[in-house]
């Protein structure tokens, strides 16, 4: 489809937006690809607890001094809690990864019929009015919850992992990371509004593996 030449300000706007978007989106994709592998670690951790329970083993190792997250030993309950620590990271960063792949569930009966431009506008407005405020506000309000965990030295009451603040801090970090990803998406779509050639073709066949 031939395009009329763009006004210089549009071309410039598109280039700047796309240039700013690239590192933000790229970061989300790279981190998401890495954290995806955690699903195998989660599986391994769960299987380890099954095996330990089967063998009636409670303490795997004890040592002198305190190690970050593991305290002074490794027990069946450390491994049990490790399961959801890993799962939490997988989920939080997977959210951003799914955003960049557009695999979050949409009801696309109307969306499907919109022009690429219309879709870009829906997403820009949504990210700016819904997603980004949600992430930043909840991240900001979680600050107390992380600080309190850090100051109190919160740890497992089942003889599991210590330093609970580490996983608690993942919540605001993950949400801010998602907001950054959403901001990257806004810039990318904005580039598309400046320069329609940058918009994806209307036939996207993304089918989430739903439920």
């Amino acid at each position: 489809m031939p395009h009329a030449p763009l006004a210089p300000w549009r071309e410039r706007g598109a280039a700047v937006s796309a240039g700013l978007a690239r590192p933000l989106v790229g970061l989300g994709l790279v981190v998401g690809r890495i954290t995806s592998w955690l699903v195998l670690l989660v599986m391994l951790a769960v299987l380890t607890t099954v095996a330990l329970n089967f063998l009636g083993i409670n303490t795997i190792a004890r040592w002198e001094g305190e190690v970050l997250l593991f305290g002074d030993g490794l027990t069946i309950n450390s491994v049990t809690e490790l399961q959801w620590h890993l799962f939490g990271i997988l989920t939080l960063f997977g959210g951003t990864y799914a955003l960049h792949h557009d695999s979050h569930v949409r009801v696309d009966l109307v969306y499907h019929r919109l022009s690429p431009r219309g879709r870009a506008i829906v997403d820009i407005l949504g990210h700016l009015l819904m997603l980004i405020p949600f992430c930043l506000l909840i991240a900001w309000l979680s600050e107390h919850f992380v600080r309190m965990s850090y100051l109190s030295g919160e740890q497992s009451n089942y003889g599991g992992l210590t330093d609970r603040y580490l996983i608690k801090a993942m919540l605001p970090i993950g949400l801010v990371f998602l907001a950054l990803g959403a901001f990257g998406q806004v810039l990318e779509k904005l580039a598309g509004l400046f320069d329609p050639a940058r918009l994806p073709s209307p036939h996207t066949d993304k089918e989430p593996m739903h439920g």
């Binding site: 979050h104 969306y111 879709r119 949504g126």
Partner: peptide, 18 residues
């Protein structure tokens, strides 16, 4: 909002805040 096609997850969160 759901009919707009914006991802439901984000819509739920954002509307809660709003």
């Amino acid at each position: 909002g759901i009919f707009s096609g914006y991802p439901v997850a984000f819509l739920l969160g954002g509307l809660g805040i709003a």
